[in-house]
Design a protein around this nucleic acid. Structure first.
Lengths: 192, 192
DNA sequence: CTGTTGATGTCAGTTGCTGTCATCAACAGT
DNA sequence: ACTGTTGATGACAGCAACTGACATCAACAG
């Protein structure tokens, strides 16, 4: 095709994760990432909106998978069960990339700017889930609350999976977290 | 006291909100904010870590109020009810500042960078709530999930309060949102 | 053989943010 | 009254993130 080496994005993403892991995010300059990938700083910014975005290249794909799984399950299941189906789908996706996911998460947890970006990506997923629920007839505020609940389960389950020494099954951790959420919201005095 | 006009921080915060509202966040430079407050750019960065932080000056106070209310209620209530007490306390705090809160929120919603900062502040509150629950004997993952649930109710309730044309009572909206969350997590098939 | 396309390079410029040193009113101790 | 310290500020230089504008040149279409 072009006159250059292909897979520019892949090279940039690999170089970025490696440099962020080795020297830390702040100590790495975009120019270094680009040079490491055989490109220039300007080209980096043609592929990614900023220095953070290079770590979140497949968040769109992740969101689509989550939303699609929930939407399909919604035809025959209650919202909370549809969300459980979505959590199962993404668990399956993540399970096969455990080492990469852990390395990436370590970089993110070490830097507030990256945590911020991670949070807004997750918030976008929550919004997309709420939208899907609404399209299937769930009214507000139930739709947004169910979506936020699903995201909460994901965050807690994911975190527990990441820090676990042994190789816990992510799907199981997710299911356990969802059950815990049900238990904790069911406790207390009944609403009047 | 000093040889300068007092209330430097207050002047910077007022100038920032005004300029961000009028021209937009991106179109405003830190130098402009500082000049508008009768100070220099360098002094701005002595008071705030970055251009975003000036909008989040009292988030620490907000978090303390939330956490304290939950901690007090935890001595005699279940986690979910303690969180309800916390939501009630912050609702009371916010109710008296509706105009300021709306103006500030409009600025935040208009800019992704500010949304990111808002999200990480909220995440910090969630972490503090989970910590408080743990100190009162709630084990993981229940503590983190309960905290996330409380934050979810806050986000949804707050959003509904902000966009409401009429003057809905924030406390009531929060209670309704919490009840909706309980309903939505209680639905679906029982856990096996 | 020629015109277009598209990913890249080059370069200058703005702005967020930091390190360093100077300034100078207020205050404390003598 | 004199002096040394303190602390908030100003002044200035500099780095790195990011952007706009223009040039380059292999590949491809016709």
């Amino acid at each position: 095709m072009g006159r250059w080496e292909p897979n520019a994005r892949e090279r940039l993403e690999t170089a970025a994760l490696e440099l962020y892991s080795d020297r830390g995010y702040e100590q790495t300059t975009v120019a270094e990432i680009a040079t490491c990938a055989g490109l220039t700083e300007r080209t980096f910014f043609r592929h990614y909106a900023d220095k953070r975005e290079v770590l979140f290249a497949n968040s769109g794909e992740f969101q689509e998978l989550f939303v699609r799984a929930v939407a399909e399950a919604l035809t025959s299941a209650a919202p909370i069960d549809a969300l459980a189906a979505g959590l199962d789908a993404i668990s399956e996706m993540l399970a096969g990339q455990r080492d990469f996911v852990r390395a990436r998460q370590a970089v993110i947890m070490a830097n507030p700017e990256l945590q911020e970006r991670d949070l807004i990506k997750t918030a976008a997923i929550s919004a997309a889930l709420a939208d899907t629920l609404r399209r299937h007839g769930i009214t507000e505020p139930a739709a947004s609350l169910a979506a936020e609940a699903g995201i909460a389960v994901f965050k807690v389950g994911f975190q527990r999976w990441i820090v676990a020494d042994e190789d816990h099954d992510l799907s199981r951790v997710m299911r356990e977290s969802l059950d815990e959420l049900k238990a904790v919201t069911a406790g207390g005095q009944d609403a009047t």
